[in-house]
Amino acid sequence: MSLNEFFHMGGYAFYVWTSYGLALIVLLLNVIGPLRQRKKLLNDIARTNRRARRNTP
């Protein structure tokens, strides 16, 4: 099977690749979300820590 044939998907290329592409996007977003949230949270907590230390010497 040639690469061209593979991407052509017997004429259903648009439907098949849209589905797989969409799945990829949804799955990626679900991973990126918590990663970014964790980073933000830790930064946030560190900042409040520093502020608390400054206020109570």
């Binding site: 998907m9 017997g10 004429g11 259903y12 439907y15 098949v16 589905s19």
Partner: peptide
Amino acid sequence: QQGDSYRI
């Protein structure tokens, strides 16, 4: 029957 579309 469905060709390659069934891969969805």
